[in-house]
Design a protein around this nucleic acid. Structure first.
Lengths: 332, 332
DNA sequence: ACGAACTCTGCAAAGGATTGCAGTGAGCTC
DNA sequence: GAGCTCACTGCAATCCTTTGCAGAGTTCGT
């Protein structure tokens, strides 16, 4: 192994051509003679040459790198998104910088600004940042939002309304007429859309929805919500996400309230843990890796289209996964 | 906001000095006059200047970037490690490329090789790669291993023996004398060490250990192991990790076997899910973010010490977290 | 008051890849 | 066979920052 990696010049010398030709062989093969191309390819192979990204970036102004900002890597939802982003990026030979903001919305803006200088674009999962902050960021950076929409900014979202419709149809079919809603953080984009979607769907079925407020999108949040849910007298509850649902399940168990006997529970996300909950959680599965994958595709499209003739936007659909936490409504 | 970001020259012009001086102000402030320094600082501030990493990397040969390779980002253990790595790297203004190998050990070597050209060093979580592969990688790359040791390669490991000792002491105190061990993948470094540690600790207490074999380090693996564990007649079981323990718990529940009434269960890792399991899982908590943090520190130290005068290595200790899945051994 | 010792600053080269422009040679047309 | 086109290749400038070396100016010792 060479102590210092082979450069373009080394390849050129070995192949008996000029550096320009090597460069062209690699980036615009059609432009060079087949015989030359073969010689160069052989030299590249022999030397194990890999272009120096820094040098290339210096001249092209592109880094071949994208940034990915998430609120919390330990949250399985985001972990899956990262997985998707990373896999798709690799296929296009794009490297991914990951940054975890630790749910700190204030630091986030600064972090994104700093990151933006080092990357070609950013995939941003920022459920709670304000629209103004987002606009400021998008002003001077190529950004694709995940799981939220904002005017004029590209993004990939879930059709929350439709997911809620599936959940409600399922519950109504089971005889539920009074459905509780446990919201996530009030400022969260998806809380708003899921809440609204749920309300709409419930009204379509002439049933009743009772919102019990906003809770942290965590296990603890779910535990905190449980007693209020019970107090509403609802026979079913839909929660902001699975983590909340699982916390809720735990508290209900402690109180000896049977699920789904007395109360049916539906989550959103379908994280791995949901399958393992007791009872296994009925939930609206959101394609997470898919979201990451598409975010990257949108971003790459955006980068290749500087004059903004495309509107990179995408929508993904949820799928109701019925498990054991939902059942027929108890007889009144 | 400037369409094209400010360069060193822009700053120099604004401050009325040469580019060299600006560069020095930024990297070796002591060398420049205080008044000049202030002028430069003001210009930097005004222009929002940030050095171009590519250009710097080109000349210094350092990219200011490290790579992080994990088998599966969706595994909460690794997600936490990533979090730790990422946080520590940011404090030193080092960017992190993350790569998920999707548990593909074959692709891994190639991936690491490719990555190694783009980064100053790599933090590698590779529980299953062979020692030979690891050596090959370490040959021409700065690598720090996480959660495994290999001759001559820097790394951060857990004191598995000691963790097992804690678990066994706890179980023995509860009256358990026959303890089952559910191993992870046979080739995994930590399976070997945990298995050995357990055996040693059990023998110290004149108790008995019965190994039920190797299973996938997953929920499914745990479910698969459960019936065999029961068949051993052991009153307690220690599993390779929490995911396995939780799968085991699920299967035991299905079979109506009481935990900890009939069988006590101990996991390893303390992932978030363990707290939420039913019963809440007793486990050996491994400091995960800490491992990531230290791995970065070792790597950084390694990079600053090219002549290899230091031996970057670290050990972390587990801590037994007693929850509800362990209790007194049933009377025979 | 002269030279030495410093302190601070600028010049210029270097690092690796890309690309507009120009040059070479072959092939073709008439 | 002269002139033209076309395909291919090389030259050289460029991207931005760092750093060895040298120069300018100041201070201090004697």
């Amino acid at each position: 192994m060479p102590a210092t990696p082979a450069t373009l010049r080394d390849v050129a010398r070995l192949a008996g051509v000029s550096p320009s030709t090597v460069s062209r062989t690699l980036s615009m093969p059609a432009m060079v003679n087949a015989a030359t191309r073969a010689r160069v390819a052989a030299a590249v192979e022999q030397l194990g040459y890999q272009p120096n990204r820094a040098a290339r970036g210096l001249i092209t102004g592109r880094t071949g790198t994208i940034g990915l900002v998430v609120p919390d890597l330990a949250n399985p939802f985001f972990a899956s998104v990262v997985k998707g982003v990373q896999a798709r990026a690799r296929r296009s030979d794009v490297a991914v910088f990951v940054a975890d903001t630790d749910e700190d919305e204030v630091a986030e803006v600064g972090l994104v600004q700093a990151l933006s200088k080092q990357v070609d674009g950013i995939v941003l999962c920022s459920p709670r940042a304000s629209d103004a902050d987002l606009s400021a960021i998008a002003e001077n950076t190529n950004v694709v939002l995940v799981n939220r929409a904002a005017a004029g900014i590209p993004g990939i979202t879930y059709d929350n309304e439709e997911g809620m419709r599936q959940a409600v149809a399922h519950l109504v079919a089971l005889g539920h007429r009074r459905i509780a809603w446990v919201g996530g953080p009030a400022t969260s984009w998806s809380t708003q859309h899921r809440g609204l979607g749920l309300r709409t769907a419930v009204e379509e079925h002439h049933a009743e929805v009772v919102a019990v407020g906003n809770f942290a999108p965590t296990y603890e949040g779910g535990m905190a919500a449980a007693d209020q849910v019970v107090a509403t007298g609802a026979t079913a509850v839909v929660t902001y996400n699975d983590l909340v649902a699982i916390g809720l399940l735990a508290r209900l168990h402690t109180r000896g309230i049977s699920v789904p006997g007395v109360l049916s529970v539906v989550g959103v996300d379908d994280i791995a843990m949901s399958r393992m909950a007791r009872p296994a959680l009925t939930t609206v599965r959101l394609p997470k890796q898919e979201a990451g994958r598409i975010a990257v595709e949108l971003l790459l499209a955006l980068l290749d289209d500087p004059d903004g003739s495309i509107d990179p936007r995408g929508t993904l659909h949820g799928e109701l996964i019925v498990r054991d936490s939902t059942g027929p409504a108890p007889n009144p």
